[in-house]
Structures are given as C-alpha cells and as structure tokens.
Write a protein that binds this DNA or RNA. Sequence first.
DNA 1: TAATTATTGTTATATTATAACATTATGTAA
DNA 2: TTACATAATGTTATAATATAACAATAATTA
Lengths: 132, 132
Amino acid sequence: MDKQQILSKNQQIIFDIIEKAKEPIKAYSILFNVQKKGIKAPLQVYRALDKLVEIGKIHKIESRNSFVACKNSNCQISKATAFSICESCEEVSEISDNKLSKYLKSFQNKAGMKFKKYNLEFFGLCKKCSIK
Amino acid sequence: MDKQQILSKNQQIIFDIIEKAKEPIKAYSILFNVQKKGIKAPLQVYRALDKLVEIGKIHKIESRNSFVACKNSNCQISKATAFSICESCEEVSEISDNKLSKYLKSFQNKAGMKFKKYNLEFFGLCKKCSIK
DNA sequence: TAATTATTGTTATATTATAACATTATGTAA
DNA sequence: TTACATAATGTTATAATATAACAATAATTA
C-alpha cells in the first residue's frame, strides 16, 4: 500500500505544472508558469522541486537540468531512475524495466560501496527523428 | 590501435589540470587554475571541455557539473560511462565493467530508439564514509 | 595559394541555483 | 490547549554554471 504524501501548497502547484507538461520542464520555466499563482522567487520553486524529488513524485534529468513527473506509480522514492533522451527533439521517456533495475541493483551489491540509488540516461534518436 | 588525438594548446592545458586533479573538477575551478597560463574567459574553458568530452579524454559528471579524466584508456569516445559517487565525501570513481557495458548496450538494442551513448551514476557511501 | 575548418580571444549576458534571514503554518507531546 | 519542534513560506541579494555574438588567427586540405 502506497503511503500517500500530502503536498504543501507550493509543492502541489509546482507538481501540477510538471505533471501537465508531460515533458521535461526547467525550473525557470516553472517559475514563469506559476507567477500568476503568487510564487515569485526562484527559491520557492527550487525548494518545492527538492522536496518533490526527495519523495519521488518527480525526477530530475541531470543532463538537461529539467524535471519530469514520475510515471511509475510505485517509485515513491526515486532511488532507481532510467531515461531515454532524444538528442534531436529532446523527447524524454522514463524507462521502467524490472530486469534492468534488478540487474543494476545486483550490480550495486557486488561493488564495495553501499549504494542508495542510481540514475541512468540513454542518449540517441527517437523513432521519429531517426526517420528524418 | 588507438588513434592518438593531438590536442590544441588550450585543450592540452585544461586536460592536464583535469588529469592532475584525480578527482572531479568544476569549470570555474579549472578557470581559476589556468589564469596564470593566459586563459582568462569561461568560454575558453568550456570550449576545451566540450572538445575533450567529445573525443572521450574526459567525462562530465552530470549530477555534479564537474569533469574527470577518463580512466579507461580504451574509451576514446565517451559513449558508455558509469560512475559511483559518494554522497558524503563526493569521491567519484569511474566504473569499467565489461558485463555492465555489454548488458546496457544489449538493453539499448532491444529498445525502439537508436542509442548512441549512455551515462550511469550510482550514489551512496564509499567504504571510508560508511564506517563513520 | 586559395579555401575551408578548427581554434582562439573578448565582451557581454543568459541560465541555473543557493545563502541568509524573517515569518508563518503544521504536527506532536505534555 | 499550550508549549515545543519541525516544515514550509516569503524576500532580497548573490553565487555558480553556461552560452551568444563577433572578430581574429592558426591549421588543414584541395
């Protein structure tokens, strides 16, 4: 059973924007979108983003400095994320593949380090862009 | 046989700094280090960094906005990178594991996308920091 | 040698992110 | 229900990361 996290006002506003976007969105783009709702300062956005990442509602695409809503309803904590990124159109999709995550978790255990999480980003051309 | 890339003046200066550092180093820290050598502007650093990444002499740690010299002499083009990052002391080490890279390449091929490269970052505590 | 491409130099500016401090709201335990 | 602790908010200023635009020079190739 998923423990349902209750979001604060700002967290909810910012999560809604990210979820509606359906594509990665940048912090200052979020800021622009929420100014009509009274969120005026970057820090207000970044604080909400930090929290949302922490509880796994969103993920950060590190190579793009942008954020997406989590598509895997079960990944409450974003400790295992994988994305494919089109270098042409910048489309990003979250990969949820049990074998992959099992493999990477077992790989972690073999290593000397105590791992908490990982992030994997694949780059290439999506179907549409490879046709062109 | 490895084709040996000849570096330009700035590229060589900046690569030397990164290689000596033996730990990830940030662009503006590099800039500070090379000002005595006549490189004054951020763009001069970023241009060299871009090229060095492109030819695989260095890698970018995306989650840290920092750069390390490639430890795998064979990865001339950095199309398959993996790192483990200690969240306590920020130590970063490059993982070179044939099984892992084979697995990820085969995973790529199964997907609908034409992949060119990937970057994987594991986070946790290194041995030293887990003792504490 | 001319043409092309890669590299450099320079100034200004855009983009991404946090420090520091004050205040308000929410949750928790006596 | 009051006191205490913790989380969230608001605000100003500034730090850190990265690129645009333009001009000049060096290296490579036809």
